[in-house]
């Protein structure tokens, strides 16, 4: 697909731990991936799988004193973000890499108008004058299709609805034309009709601005609609990576297969069964060191080898990697 394109972000063997009173949680446990210029990469998984922590690790926004990336590298623009000092990181954050969060209200400052907030980012990162920055803010709000942008640029965040606020967040994130936009569950808090608007808007603007998107979501529907490549995470690890078509046509990891079978969503023409397929049991605790495959206790195909030895990521077709001892067996069936 874009295999030849030079990656703009390359995460190598990232390990992020949380240090709490009750012990160390291995939230991200050796994750590697790359994002090519202009592509949309999805990271999908259930709560606690480490997808959001991966994003926060890249942005270096882990809660101070609690979470820390203890290993690996995050290469962006020829530098390892994990080794930068805070001042250098601030220059990249919001400028070259921007982020959109699930709950826009908590990431907007309630006492500043949205115009001031967008203009401030533009002034800091691009050294524009107040006047130019304000013009840019207005232009960005028009771009994200906020009606009557010239007037609304002076409104405060609470004067916007949830969907409009997420538009403001996107406007702010894209105001400095970042190379990479990290979207962490950007539509999860929104109603379906509004979600459809926001997803459509993000994909459109991505094309105009030429940013790559790292789309973090729990929703395979959102992945199918927006992404080109997908990473499936489980228990802090990457268990499968493939192009979106490949993943949905030929899911190889038993967890991915389980996830897909348990969605009650409408697939036109898909056969209907009364019972949904369940994945028995629950996600393992990340406090205890995991031996073997983390999914083994819930896996219908697990063998003695799976509980003893962690499977490495192996290639199964072009651009399709899976961490499963039994993937060969699945691929054939």
């Amino acid at each position: 697909m874009r295999a030849g394109a030079e990656p703009i972000l390359s995460v190598e063997d990232l390990h992020t731990h949380f240090f709490t009173q009750d012990g160390v949680t291995r939230a991200v446990d050796g994750v590697s991936f790359t994002v090519a210029a202009g592509e949309t990469l999805g990271i999908v998984g259930e709560s606690g799988c480490g997808k959001s922590v991966t994003a926060l690790s890249i942005m270096r926004l882990l809660p101070p004193g609690l979470g820390r990336s203890v290993g690996g590298s995050v290469r962006f623009g020829g530098r390892d973000l994990l080794t930068l000092d805070e001042a250098e990181m601030r220059r990249i954050r919001g400028d070259r890499i921007a982020m959109v969060f699930q709950e826009p209200m908590t990431s907007l400052n309630p006492v500043l108008t949205v115009g001031e907030q967008i203009a401030e980012a533009v002034m800091i990162h691009q050294g524009k004058s107040r006047h130019d920055a304000w013009a840019r803010a207005e232009e960005m709000l028009t771009l994200v299709r906020i009606p009557d942008a010239a007037r609304r640029v002076g409104d405060y965040p609470h004067q916007f609805s949830g969907g409009m606020r997420q538009r403001v967040m996107i406007a702010m994130a894209l105001s400095c034309h970042p190379q990479l936009l990290i979207a962490d569950e950007p539509t999860t808090a929104l109603d379906v009709t509004i979600q459809a608007q926001i997803l459509k808007l993000m994909l459109e603007l991505k094309g105009r601005i030429g940013a790559a998107i790292l789309m973090i979501t729990h929703d395979l529907g959102v992945v199918a609609e927006t992404c080109q490549r997908v990473i499936v995470m489980y228990a802090g690890r990457k268990v499968e990576e493939a192009s979106v078509l490949d993943l949905f046509d030929r899911p190889l990891h038993p967890y991915t297969r389980g996830l897909m079978a348990s969605i009650p969503r409408r697939r036109p023409g898909a056969p209907r069964t009364r019972r949904l397929q369940e994945i028995p049991g629950m996600v393992p605790s990340l406090r205890e060191p995991l031996s073997g495959c983390p999914f083994a206790p819930r896996c219908p195909l697990a063998t003695a080898r799976c509980t003893a030895e962690a499977p490495p990521l192996e290639q199964h077709g072009a651009g399709h990697v899976v961490a499963c001892w039994e993937a060969g067996r699945i691929g054939v069936s």
Partner: peptide, 18 residues
Amino acid sequence: AAAPIPDPRARTERIVLE
């Protein structure tokens, strides 16, 4: 129409409510 369908082949231009 707005609910995302978990099938990448079903991606179509569709009515999005304004």
